[in-house]
Computed example of a mutant assay.
Amino acid sequence: MGATGASAAVALPPDIQVLERGWLSANNVLLHGPQGAAVVDTGYCTHAEQTVALVQAALGGQPLAHILNTHLHSDHCGGNAALQARWPGVHTRIAPGEAEAVRAWDESRLSYRPTGQECPRFRFDGLLEPGTEVRVGARRWQVHAAPGHDTHSVVLYAPDAGVLIAADALWERGFGVVFPEIEGEDAFAAVGATLDLIERLEPRVVIPGHGSVFTDVGGALAYARKRLAGFVQDPQRHALYAAKVLLKYKLLEWQQVPVARLQAWAEGTPYFGLLHRAHFADQPEAAWLQSLMDDLVRSGAATREGALLVNG
Rank of each mutant, 00 (worst) to 15 (best):
G2I: 13
A6S: 13
P13E: 05
R21F: 08
R21L: 09
W23K: 13
S25M: 08
A38G: 14
V40P: 06
T46F: 15
A53P: 04
V55Q: 02
Q56I: 07
Q56H: 15
G60F: 06
G60H: 05
H66G: 09
L68S: 09
N69F: 03
H71R: 01
H73C: 10
S74P: 09
G89N: 09
P96A: 06
A99H: 11
A99P: 10
A99G: 13
R103P: 02
S111P: 02
T115L: 10
Q117V: 11
P120V: 08
R123M: 08
F124L: 09
G126V: 10
E133R: 15
R139T: 15
R139W: 11
Q142D: 12
A145S: 06
A146T: 03
A158K: 06
A158G: 14
P159I: 02
D160Q: 15
L164N: 00
A166Q: 04
G176A: 09
V177N: 04
F179R: 09
P180H: 07
E181W: 11
E181R: 05
V191R: 01
T194E: 08
D196W: 00
V205L: 05
I207W: 06
G209L: 02
G211R: 06
T215A: 12
L221E: 00
L221V: 00
L221M: 02
L221A: 00
A224W: 00
A224R: 01
R225G: 10
A229G: 11
G230H: 12
F231S: 06
H238G: 01
A239C: 07
L246H: 08
K248L: 08
K248M: 05
E253D: 14
W254V: 14
V257R: 13
V257Q: 09
V259S: 13
L262V: 12
G268N: 11
G273T: 03
L275S: 00
R277A: 01
A281Q: 06
Q283E: 13
W288E: 07
S291L: 14
L292E: 09
L296S: 02
R298S: 05
S299D: 13
A302K: 04
V310A: 13
